[in-house]
Design a protein around this nucleic acid. Structure first.
Lengths: 244, 244
DNA sequence: TCTAACGGCGTTGCATGCAATTTTCGGGAC
DNA sequence: GTCCCGAAAATTGCATGCAACGCCGTTAGA
């Protein structure tokens, strides 16, 4: 949401828009299912419809937005089933990355991963969800990088972004931080020792636990739409009614 | 992939273009590194630049095309390193799909997979690379589907499309058809029996063997640009020189 | 001869306008 | 009261036009 210092258009408008809209979706400012009116977005960001259209197409390819020919674009609706699939996919990809990392991380990368993990112990004890979430992103990111495969890493990152709003809430559950850190410990130990199969299993288990934690939350709070500030581009025009 | 009867513009021009350009790239009509001039493409397909631009953005997100801001789009260059990464990623994803398929395919899906595999025996014996390649696509596709995870299946399909030109050549190697069919047999047996870990291992091995087969070919033939008809939109304007 | 500034040309980025299609809303029949 | 049909309004798809930027050849200077 950091409006990237307004006018510095080193990038093209299309890129700026794609980033801004993606962030608005990921942070929950644009709720799933809400229509993405081209003209409204153009007005909102002070450009014409052309770059908006191009940005929407891009986001459509990456799965954040659903573009229906001649019927406009909407923020991709994440059903329970779809959410489960996303989590399973992420678990599998992350586990794969962990296995590859165990096989091919350089000594330096291993030391850094270990150090990062150690530093997270304090954050877990302090119980600061914000800081831990940030470090957590770096932690998983360094494992993607350690897999030495940009294709898998990109996919993992894109999945992670799409699931971000759902993953974040879980850190607020009491005790989840400590357990997360413990699970990380198992993964790190396996990677450092080069035990590939165990690294895979540990990571798969870790992400699957995150999933069930999130599912528990969602079931309890009944899909309460992310914390987030109210939609800037509201439009309940089309309904978006949750229960008809 | 199936050219949906030319002119029926039930879809939008942008979609048609994205499909057409993607196919041209995948079939090698548009060689890696060649410039994708917006006006030229617009003329070629009888539309204006607007839908061409939108199509190029989409293809850019999916990795087939590299769009450089203000500097035009080019067909993504696939270096040896990148190719290896793509193959590793595909091997891992396919192996994951195979494992999930072993766990969750329905009896009907299992029977159909078995039948498909059996029918490929004839094609392998007949030694018809074209027909076998088609059946092979269906074979792997049914395993993606059997994983019951659209996210992973989509990713696997997109990787497969990107690697298609490289995978196809290998079926021309003498004896590769028979060996491919044998490897499939191992995978199918594991899936049908629900032996998840073995399905994973067998598929990983299968795709890895494909990779080494392809690498052998490429090394021998020195990146001879796919069979294919000559580029329709030629332009070696920018050089595209292989060895300066 | 090599380097670097300069200017023309080609291409991209974006705004605007129009036609086609979808959506919405009002009226009438059942 | 509900359903169906038709016209107006809204919205998307695409074409066109212009400004800005990058590329390339030329030329001046060292």
């Amino acid at each position: 949401m950091d409006e990237r210092s307004g006018e510095r258009s080193g990038r093209t408008q299309t890129e700026r828009l794609a980033g801004a809209i993606a962030e608005a979706i990921v942070t929950g400012v644009l709720a799933p299912g809400s229509r993405l009116d081209e003209q409204a977005l153009a007005d909102r960001y002070g450009v014409s419809r052309t770059p908006v259209r191009e940005a929407l197409r891009q986001l459509g390819t990456s799965g954040l937005v659903e573009v229906r020919p001649r019927r406009g674009a909407v923020v991709a609706e994440v059903t329970a089933g779809k959410l489960a699939e996303l989590f399973v996919a992420m678990a599998e990809i992350e586990a794969t990355c962990a296995r590859l990392a165990a096989q091919s991380m350089s000594p330096l990368e291993r030391r850094r991963l270990d150090a990062l993990h150690e530093s997270m112990a304090d954050l877990a004890r302090a119980g600061d969800p914000e800081a831990y979430a940030r470090a957590n992103t770096a932690f998983h990111g360094s494992i993607y990088a350690g897999a030495h495969n940009a294709v898998l890493a990109d996919f993992a990152l894109s999945l992670r972004r799409r699931l971000q709003p759902y993953r974040e809430v879980q850190f607020r559950v009491t005790g989840r931080l400590a357990r997360s850190h413990m699970e990380h410990g198992t993964v790190v130990a396996a990677i450092l020792d080069g035990r590939a199969a165990e690294a895979h299993a540990a990571m798969l288990r870790h992400v699957t636990l995150v999933e069930s934690s999130v599912e528990g939350l969602l079931a309890r709070e009944r899909v309460e739409e992310i914390p987030a500030a109210g939609p800037i581009i509201g439009n309940t025009r089309d309904g978006t009614r949750r229960r008809p």
